[in-house]
Amino acid sequence: MTNSKPIILVVNDDGVTAPGIKALIHVMKEIGRVVVVAPDSPQSGMGHAITIGKPLRLDKVDLYEGVEMYSCSGTPVDCVKLAVTKIFKGKKPDLCVSGINHGLNNGINVLYSGTMSAAVEGAIEGIPSIGFSLDDYTWQADFSHTEKYIKDIALQVLANGMPTATLLNVNFPNTPNLKGIRICRQANAKWAEDFDERVDPYKRPYYWISGVFQVNDNGEDSDSWALDNGYVSVVPVQFDMTAHHAIPILNSWKFNA
């Protein structure tokens, strides 16, 4: 970083008009120069999807004063890729922040989340990156209690950088009385899905996904525990998905081919 204001890329998966991204922009404007690239419609649950086989649109919009802002027809990951290649033209921003997501991204949610995948893409590009999420799915969510923590965490990342190939997954419980920040591991938690089967007017079945989020983890060092107990959870995430602990086990196998 130079002595000039840091350049901050803001992305999300709830769409360019979501209240969560408005709150994140408000905080980032206190820190640096903000450039926003966000989907033109909600893209929750898109994971690390990219658009192939159809064109992408990138339109400049004017929603917030003093903010360079673009609406993208693609996925959250598309937004980061287009930002790096077409807006920044290969010159990386100092920070990439994604969110604030309407809904948690703890446990296994990190794999499905468009919010976190945008942040992961930022990290893949070598940009210090953070994903922020709040435990409130409503469009009327109050993000005010998260702002001082978001600013603190972002400033720490700008000052210290991130370990190679890592990023931060930050989640907030839906309470104004936050107890502080806990550095955590990802909980052993997953969705137990159900598919509600219905029939359309042509007598063809269709399905609505639903389910319950199950936490199979009693550890007090997990993100789920931190959130249940009123803390901001901060999990360092890596995009190298190699199970390094399994390599010696596989090397002990006797392959016959």
Rank of each mutant, 00 (worst) to 15 (best):
I150L: 07
G90Y: 01
W253P: 04
G32H: 11
W139H: 13
Y231P: 03
G122Q: 03
M28Q: 06
V36D: 10
V157D: 12
V199Y: 15
K86V: 07
E220H: 07
V120Y: 04
K91N: 09
S113G: 15
N106L: 04
G107F: 00
I31W: 06
R33H: 03
Q156K: 11
F143I: 09
G131P: 02
P163R: 01
G211M: 05
L168V: 01
T242S: 13
K89Y: 06
K254R: 09
Q186G: 11
P205Q: 11
N177Q: 15
A83K: 05
T242N: 02
Y137A: 15
W253S: 08
L104D: 04
V34Y: 00
S4F: 07
G131I: 03
E193D: 05
K151M: 05
N160Q: 06
T138V: 12
I127V: 04
S73Q: 01
S144Q: 09
P248D: 10
V120I: 13
Y70C: 00
Y202N: 03
Q238E: 08
K86P: 01
L111R: 13
I21T: 10
L250R: 13
G53L: 01
N101A: 00
A123T: 10
V157S: 08
P42K: 10
V97C: 02
L134K: 02
A165K: 14
I31F: 02
N229Q: 13
G122L: 00
L134M: 12
L95V: 02
D228R: 13
P248E: 05
V67Y: 07
S252G: 14
A165G: 13
N171V: 04
A243E: 15
L227Q: 12
E65V: 15
T2F: 14
L250S: 14
